[in-house]
Structures are given as C-alpha cells and as structure tokens.
Amino acid sequence: MPDRPPDGIADRIAQRALARRADQYADEVRALLDAARAVMRRLGTTARPRVADIVTAAGLSNEAFYRHFRSKDALVAAIMEDGAERLCGYIAHQMAKEPTARGKVRRWAEGVLLQATDPDTAETTLAVMWNAQSVGEGFLAGPPTIAGLLADLLRAPYTELGSTTPDLDAALAAHAVVGRLADHLWRRTPPTGADVEHITRFCLRTVTPEGA
C-alpha cells in the first residue's frame, strides 16, 4: 500500500493537536509527582499515600493517574528518578562555579549533605525513601541510582586529581557518602560543618595522598 501523500493543512492541525496533548500530559505528570511528594511529606513514615490521596491533591482523576503510571509503585520510582535528576542538576551547577578539581569535590560533598541539613528537604527525602522501600527500590537502588548519578559528577574531577580508576573511585565515594546521608536522614541528625569537612577530606583522600 503506497504511503499517504502529504496533506499540508491536515498535517499541521494534527501536529498542533499533538503538541497541545503533549503539553497537557506533561503538566499532568508534573502535578502528580509534586502532589505525591507533598502527600508523602505530610504522612512521613507513618503511612503510605493511596492513589486517591495523590489524585485529590493533584486535582486530577484516577484516569489521569493511570494514563501515565501503571501503579503507585511506578509513581514512586518516577519520584526517585525526578529527585535524583534535580539533585544532580543542582550539584553540577554548584561544581561549575569552582575552578579547581578539589573545589568541585568540596561542592559535591556539600551538595549531597545539604539534603539532610534543611529540615523540610530532609523530611521530604526521608518520606520518599521510606515509601520507596515498599517497591524494592530504596535509596541506594535504582535504576538510575542516586549514587550512580552522583558518581558521574565526580568522574571528571577525580581524573584531574590523578585517579587511575576514576569510575571505580567515584562510585565508591558516592555510595559511601550517600550511605552517610541516609544515616543522617533516618536519625534526623543534620550534618555539622565538621561532618562536611571530614567527608570532603575522605573524598579527596580517595584519589590524593594525605596532605597533598
């Protein structure tokens, strides 16, 4: 069967309709992500939100929810991925302000631990972590894993600092620091300036001799 010949006006109208639908769907997904995060923050680690709670908070319907997510577990996984991308974007922006590799590593450590320093951010992150455990995708699991994405940011400065295995060194440092972050969040003990300094030195010792 031959291909349909181009139909200028019909194709343009159809494309405009598809673009409007795409914008609508993107708005729905963002509303569901933000609403779910807010409901999780309100419930904390005492109860898990229902789909009904989430769609009510988002001002949407069950139909809209299941148009984008096959289950609540899929939404929780999307929230984890969304949070990881936001965090990595923020940290990358902060690292870009530093001219040296050591400065970038320091900014990286500060950015990761900041998640446990601000009370609102800490409670939200803890609530999302707790909900994620129910779907087998905890804070250190993925995909994509938060530690894996954070390790990507360390690869270039570690290479500049002389690491011969920057991928492995960055992965080990990221998992260690994310694990420490999780400890702070679960214990509700924000890291001090001394904690940040110690962790920064740890990250640097991974690829540089002590005192270098």
Rank of each mutant, 00 (worst) to 15 (best):
E63Q: 15
V196M: 06
K72V: 08
L149V: 07
T56Q: 06
D11W: 11
A57I: 07
V135T: 12
T121D: 04
A36H: 04
L181C: 02
H198K: 10
G44H: 09
V29Y: 03
A176G: 12
T192F: 04
A176R: 08
T124D: 05
L113S: 01
E110P: 03
F65D: 02
L168H: 07
Y66A: 07
A35P: 00
E123H: 07
V39Q: 00
A171S: 13
R188A: 12
A19W: 07
A151N: 05
A176V: 12
A58V: 03
A26W: 07
G8L: 15
L150E: 02
G136N: 10
A35T: 00
V178G: 01
Q94G: 08
R67K: 14
I199F: 12
M129N: 07
A127R: 00
M1A: 13
T165M: 14
L153T: 04
V51I: 13
T46S: 04
I13E: 14
L150A: 05
I79V: 14
H68A: 01
L87P: 04
H184R: 00
P143H: 13
T100V: 08
Y66L: 10
A35I: 00
R67P: 10
P6K: 07
P6G: 02
R106V: 11
A26L: 11
L75V: 06
E210K: 11
T206L: 15
I91S: 06
R21T: 15
E210N: 08
I79P: 00
E81H: 08
V112T: 06
L87R: 12
V177F: 05
A109E: 11
R155Y: 10
A173S: 14
I79Q: 07
H68M: 05
V112Q: 02
D167R: 15
V51F: 07
A171C: 11
R187T: 10
G83C: 09
Y25I: 14
D53F: 13
W108Y: 11
A151T: 03
T45Y: 04
A38Y: 03
K97G: 05
P209C: 04
R42N: 08
A38R: 11
V196I: 15
V105C: 08
L87W: 11
G103M: 05
R20F: 14
R187P: 01
A132Y: 01
P6T: 07
R41M: 09
D183M: 07
W130N: 03
A31R: 05
